[in-house]
Design a protein around this nucleic acid. Structure first.
Lengths: 159, 159
DNA sequence: AGGAATCCCGATTGGTTTACTTGGGATTCA
DNA sequence: TGAATCCCAAGTAAACCAATCGGGATTCCT
């Protein structure tokens, strides 16, 4: 259940880009400096995000990267899914899992646990947009997980 | 966000033990057969669970393992935490993280995202006991995540 | 007493992943 | 033209994963 540095660095880079959305291309070395990440390593992460259509690039001097959509249209889940490959906790939950590979799939109670875990992480990550990050933690604290409708939970910031 | 086979095999073994709780020691080779896992590999996993106090062992012929507590007192979270090391998504969320190592810790919005993820996974895994697994998926489907009080969510089995 | 069943322990291994680094090439702006 | 920037492929050291191997210690049963 560890996140790799790819997600951590990558999300920080996307947050950096979201803060500068609309100001033209942001060169990668400035992001690397601010976020204290190796430029070359960041290049690889951003390349994935570009191929996934989350950022667009302009080459040459005065070039750089920018979000290809407004920050409110990109969720943390979008970013993490690209960088982490997927966050299905186990293979038998992935959409392209071959049902022949496990005979007890439908009534597997253990799988059911992982399914709940997957639902929950998806819900959290999909409910937070880059815009939410820009608006800061104060705003985020009050944000529910997207499925939990209880006001008291929202007020407590626990869900 | 992948779970290793340690958690998957380990939880299946614990489920197996929970189903036989109160019937005396269960030999590991029978678990390995039923769950189709290498005996030697399972030994390593169960050794961790034993050192963590979740199972107890009796040596010699007619020996084996049994849960050291009733199934309702052991959660999936207990098991996964032992086998996976921890499921803090990032180090700066772990209890023994040195706050000197990150100067922007308190108002780090990205960290806040990981914190919400951690809260959510903890809540799900801590809310499901081995007893719940024994009672089957029908029962599990109606089980809320422990924090979400909305009846509609519970009815839908989405939280 | 002896032997089978079982837990216990440590070393090794082959493969994969992680987190980079290195070394360049292509494009664009001034 | 040349500096700034993106783009790409390869290499690498370390860690981790999922086992496997080979034995040792303890206990029950006959």
């Amino acid at each position: 259940m560890k996140l790799s540095t790819r997600s951590r660095y990558g999300l920080r880079a996307m947050y950096d880009l979201a803060l500068r959305y609309g100001e033209g291309p942001v060169p990668l070395n400035s992001i690397a400096d601010r976020q204290m990440v190796s430029l070359h390593y960041l290049e690889q992460l951003v390349a994935k995000l570009r191929r996934a259509g989350l950022v667009s690039s302009s080459r040459g001097a005065q070039g750089g990267y920018e979000l290809s959509k407004p920050p409110e249209d990109i969720t943390v889940g979008d970013v993490v899914r690209v960088l982490e490959g997927s966050f299905d906790p186990v293979q038998c939950l992935s959409v392209d899992f071959d049902h022949e590979d496990c005979e007890q799939l439908d009534d597997c109670v253990v799988r059911f646990v992982w399914k709940k875990l997957q639902d929950c992480t998806n819900r959290v990550l999909n409910s937070i947009s880059l815009r939410d990050l820009c608006d800061g933690t104060t705003n985020l604290k009050g944000k529910a997980c997207g499925a939990c409708a209880s006001d008291s939970q929202q007020a407590m910031g626990t869900c």
